[in-house]
């Protein structure tokens, strides 16, 4: 591969960064979605694909996909379910929770005792609050006695929502 110019662990070349920069806002809905970006960067579509495929293997790119507006699909209720689970039991239990339908993000995070005893977060989505609460009960049944406490936090207002600015490009 080409020389690594970035200190980040994924070894992104300047061309990779240009590709990330150029596609952050999305790709055109066309039969050849990589054509325009390839032309803009002066490389072939095959090379664009090869770079994306490599970044996918490295984990820089999760996938190239459609992102729906889930509110428009009727998934208007979301609740952040939080769990205090025995650390030793987490590696076995957490993947099971994550695999349930309706669970989008599932992360282990640090506790902040005594204010915050929870170490596992699972974001739940449903068509209404009842559906989300039913999902939480399903998780309770799955976790059993390894769970010491749990809660669910419904969002009441979006105070800010902007896109992430992912580019690593500094003063290049």
């Amino acid at each position: 591969m080409s020389a690594c110019t970035s200190k980040s662990d994924a070894s992104l070349s300047a061309m990779d960064e240009a590709l990330i920069q150029a596609t952050q806002a999305g790709l055109p809905l066309s039969e050849r979605p990589f054509e325009a970006v390839a032309r803009a960067l002066g490389i072939t579509e095959d090379e664009v694909c090869a770079r994306f495929e490599r970044m996918r293997r490295e984990g820089v790119v999760r996938r190239i996909a459609l992102v729906p507006n889930h509110y428009k699909l009727g998934y208007v209720a979301n609740g952040m379910s939080v769990w205090d689970i025995d650390d030793a039991a987490l590696p076995e239990i957490a993947p099971k929770i994550a695999a349930l339908p309706g669970v989008s993000h599932c992360y282990k995070r640090p506790r902040h005792l005594p204010d915050w005893p929870y170490n596992l977060f699972a974001m739940l989505h449903g068509r209404d609050r009842e559906a989300v609460l039913a999902q939480k009960q399903e998780i309770e049944a799955l976790v059993g006695p390894a769970c010491r406490a749990s809660d669910i936090l419904f969002s009441t207002r979006i105070l800010k929502k902007t896109g992430f600015r992912l580019s690593t490009k500094g003063g290049a």
Partner: peptide, 27 residues
């Protein structure tokens, strides 16, 4: 392609493209 454009017009398709993992970008 026509269906994808229609989904965009209906506000259902929010974005089509690569989903990046910020942490792997050194962020």
């Amino acid at each position: 392609i026509e269906s994808l454009n229609s989904l965009k017009e209906k506000g259902i398709l929010m974005r089509f493209g690569p989903l990046f993992n910020a942490v792997h970008l050194g962020g």
